[in-house]
Design a protein around this nucleic acid. Sequence first.
RNA 1: GCGGGCGUAGCUCAAUGGUAGAGCGUCAGCCUUCCAAGCUGAAUGUUGACGGUUCGAGUCCGUUCGCCCGCUCCA
Length: 507
Amino acid sequence: MTSTKTFTMDELVALCKRRGFIYPASEIYGGINGFWDYGPLGTELKNNIRDAWWNDMVRCPPMGPDGDPISIVGLDSSIIQNPLVWEASGHVDGFNDPMVDCRESKSRYRADHLMVLGAVDASDRRLYAYLAGDDEGRDRAIKLLGKYEKNKPEDSDWTDQPLVSLPNQALDRIVGPNTKEPGTLTEPRQFNLMFKTFVGALQSEDTAAYLRPETAQGIFLNFNNVVDTMRVKVPFGIAQVGKAFRNEVTPRNYIFRSREFEQMEIEWFCHESDAARWFDFWCDTRRKWWESLGLTSDNVQMRRHDADELAHYAKEGCGTFDIEYRFPFTSPDFGELEGVAHRGNYDLSRHQEFSKKKLEYFDQPRNERYLPHVIEPSAGLSRGTLAILCEAFTPDEERASKVYMKFQPRVAPIKAAVFPLVNKDGLPEVAGKLYEQLRQRWPVQYDAKQSIGKRYARMDEAGCPWCFTVDSDTLTDQAVTVRDRDSLSQDRIAIDQVENWLAERLC
RNA sequence: GCGGGCGUAGCUCAAUGGUAGAGCGUCAGCCUUCCAAGCUGAAUGUUGACGGUUCGAGUCCGUUCGCCCGCUCCA
């Protein structure tokens, strides 16, 4: 059954602002496109998701497909690395040059390297592109022109000119260098989405560097270090959480596509012959993990990438599965939450080639030296936070707040609240003592202001699962009322058992 | 990047070119014995920013920033 709960992103955004989850970055200066700040509750929420991931993937990873323990170690690499890293990884490809892609051949060309041959002024005629300096390509273009355009005006109508000098409308009739039909070339466009900066006070091309566009490369760079120091054996994983930066053309949909975001990535190194098995394992494991944080299965789906949307590192092998969530702005469709990709040994081989350092692993049991294959579960922490916010947002006309955030206790930013029913008669003293006790272990809030209903309502919007209320009976029976956010039920429990009661429910 | 829409208090929104307001929230005091109760009071705005037209601009015009929608992009 599909979730019928409906709300708009505007309502969610307003609540996030109102209750201190997420603010626009630089708001008092008018904001800055594609950047967001996390408020006190948003920070707690995001950290909780991050910590859950770290705990469940690094410290206590699930059993492997054979029921054996698996090994994953953590890492925290630098955001700025040697610029050569991004050349090796394929991210710098064509920096500063407008690029033209061919949808048919999947080739990418520097726009200023392409020449076009044909009758440019005749709008019904085909034009043929070839790479400047490529005589064979030019001969092919001339041959094709002669073959298909021979009944048209004489050679003198043909021109030979750079592609960049033609209007974009002409692209529809240009035949790419390795294709048969026209219209497969895209408009020339700037392709680099990396943030550029300079290392040291002197700004020149020699000192240019980039903020990492993904956290993955820092892991590959340290592959040897980890193997040499941590006594790990293939198969094993290296995990990392951190910020990444992409100069997106169009940041959109709240924090779904922002220019600064956080990733939680695992690079799982294994033998090529085991890659398919591990790929299935990680797809399954990661989907279950998201569901364990409260995303309902109706709103989560797996989608295999089509061949033509695979990234440069995933052309072969098992391909890529996206774990997708049905966000309000994509519904009824889904948006990417995590990608599980088989990267082959692309990254290690590229870094081996560019760095000229051996990155091969010697496998004692197999008596074989090889570059491990990589399965990469790459999750968006920012997107995960958004998905959990969306999932938690529960309109309820019956209650005073009209909406409550149904966070799973594990990720809830505030675990509990302590209230004196009235702000007198010795109740604040008793409640304050309980509060001081609980806050030693969890983020807990104390509130004595205004009516009890108002305080419950505030906690509903903050997504606090339980409220403990001290009343006048507490003074004699040493018990408090626990109010459950979701069921609204109220139960009486002994005040000296509150900490245990919470501990049982918070793990 | 292109086209369209929109920016007024923390939030949701009013205000014929003529004194910037309401509700909710927030805060303080009183009150209050379990779900935004009541009473009293308070704070909060260079109407996103800059410039122009006008005796006078939240309102009209231009620029810019930001947000939303559709393309594009997302390697």
